[in-house]
Design a protein around this nucleic acid. Structure first.
Lengths: 338, 338
DNA sequence: CTGAAAGCGCTAACAA
DNA sequence: TTGTTAGCGCTTTCAG
């Protein structure tokens, strides 16, 4: 059965569309009896509100877009769920745009979404210059997650990456490790930079000298983790270490493979702390001690900030927020006490 | 800078909105010079087409919704990517709705999406009666994936689940196994039913008698896998088996844990074939031999079917398609040759 | 409390 | 080739 419009209903009931509209939207100034008649008619004639028309009139689509590099990463999935929990009760829908880690796709989606007149944007960008969003920033609430571009006055929700690294290194210290190697992502990105800071801070706090050879830089891929670990192993004579802290999930996997390939056992020979390692099945052995981000919390904080921005009238006065959340450390069996 | 409308542009250029519209949309009947003037003005006055207005006029939002039970499952992530690859070049955007495996959320989203006037729907439902979509079916292309409700005349894209089970069981036969246990999902769902069929067929083809005690039924959760495996193990004296075929990823994990808990080694004591097991890091040992679905292909076939349906005029004549795709078997080290 | 009418931004039939 | 106009379905102001 075809659905009908307000006008259809109004005609059937011999009233004006204005009245029907008011009744539908539970507005005041409608006689109780009128409202009842309308509500019944809605059922009868199968009325389904047309959000498109409404959006056009109200200049708001009640739609939030999330642009992310890879929807298959459980990290983003959890965040989307967290956002959804908060915003969907308020009638917002989420559009997901997967860029496959390509900057040009970011551009493409940004333009497309602007045409679709989204109300707000959550952005996990790979373009740290952020130049491709700059033009939308004044007109649209944008919240960054994961990596944060080098822009002034933006909103973001992330974990405290400095603290994350400190937690990892402190834990290794507590277990008796002093020679701690690390594999870091690109320090051009905020995550990489901050995670190195946390590592250095933790060493400094204990007055442990930094051995630059124990710091390897990759680009978040599994391969980089492998390569970096390999390098560390090859130099282990001159630059010995008893443990390694790897700062992304994929690199952690790569590092583990390298250790296996070189016949080094975890944790007997080398202790390891990973990052973001998700082992739903708990089938990896030994189980990996890892830093974890509170994805769901990130999502709900994003959702809350989103709603706040959406309600604000004067966007000029908006004071940008950088929300930092606490990471946690999940202790497994990959670190040996010495 | 605020973006302008067709009307704005028309005024600046002293022409009618119709002409500007034609120029913008690359329609015919526009003098070359006029077109050029318009195109330049678009830049200058920062024109961004308003898809909302266009949707209202054209009665099409160029939006496809995907309703799924859990966006964190990589299975669905890959499918979304596959769909996106096909439909986004045609200007379609994807809305994702995560139901958290709850039927009531399906209802909620269905209604919401109807209001948003989506053009088509991809549905991984948990409601096998399918009653909640029935009312939309005539007016909207709907394609089912994963589970298929018991409805006549619907479109779907899935793997051939009968074949999947046959492949698993045949492989075990080839490795010398004759006493093959299995853990099956709910046979009320099409996936569970078909996977059991495949198992039974494979046994029949080799004239191996079916021992009903070797077939356990769970509900796709990890816990079910554990419980079923436990039951099999406890009855192993009266109903011996040398291998087990588990028909979902989560249940596979549960089964593995049960085997470990009972001190049974894989594959030395019991061989195992899993389903959908994704071991990106290849860190599970032994690596699991598993049936795999071609997620990306499922996605692109869905995308193609979607476009076809979207282009068709007369939906009355639509002949429903059930597309069955070939699963594959990934051989690991969890099956012992005997 | 209800109705008439304008208008959100766009497309397309029709007229010029 | 261009312009005029109606209208997609809705909300909201203003009058009644």
């Amino acid at each position: 059965m075809k659905s009908s419009t307000l006008k259809d209903i109004a005609q059937k009931l011999n009233m004006s569309v204005a009245t029907v509209s008011r009744a539908v939207n539970n507005k005041e100034y409608v006689k109780e009896e009128t409202r009842k008649r309308v509500l019944e008619a809605l059922e009868e004639y199968n009325y389904v509100p047309n959000e498109v028309a409404r959006s056009l009139k109200l200049q708001s689509t009640k739609t939030i877009a999330v642009i992310l590099p890879d929807i298959c990463e459980a990290f983003f999935g959890e965040i989307i769920k967290g956002i959804d929990q908060i915003v969907s009760p308020k009638g917002y829908t989420i559009i997901v745009a997967d860029t496959n880690e390509k900057k040009e796709n970011e551009e493409k989606y940004l333009s497309l979404l602007q045409q679709k007149r989204i109300d707000a944007l959550v952005f996990a960008t790979v373009d740290l210059s952020g130049c491709n969003v700059k033009k939308y920033l004044p007109s649209l609430p944008v919240i960054f997650i994961d990596n944060i571009p080098e822009l002034q006055g933006i909103d973001s929700v992330t974990i405290d990456n400095v603290q994350a690294s400190s937690m990892a290194v402190d834990y290794l210290f507590e277990q008796g490790h002093e020679r701690i190697a690390t594999i870091i992502g690109s320090v051009k990105e905020t995550t990489g930079f901050a995670r190195r800071e946390g590592y250095l801070n933790a060493l400094n706090r204990r007055a442990v000298p930094v051995d630059e050879h124990l710091i390897q830089y990759g680009n978040y891929k599994e391969n980089d983790g492998f390569r970096c670990m390999e390098k560390l192993i090859q130099n282990i004579e001159e630059h010995p270490f008893t443990s390694v802290y790897v700062t992304s999930e994929k690199m952690t996997f790569g590092a583990i493979k390298a250790l296996r390939e070189y016949g080094l056992r975890i944790p007997e020979d080398i202790s390891l702390v990973g990052f973001d390692v998700q082992d739903k099945a708990q089938l990896i052995s030994p189980s990996i001690t890892t830093i974890r981000q509170p994805e769901n919390l990130i999502g709900s904080r994003v959702g809350e900030l989103l709603l706040k921005r959406l309600e604000e009238k004067e966007e000029e006065k908006r004071v940008p927020q950088q929300i930092l959340l606490r990471p946690s450390i999940v202790v497994g069996q990959s670190v040996k006490k010495i």
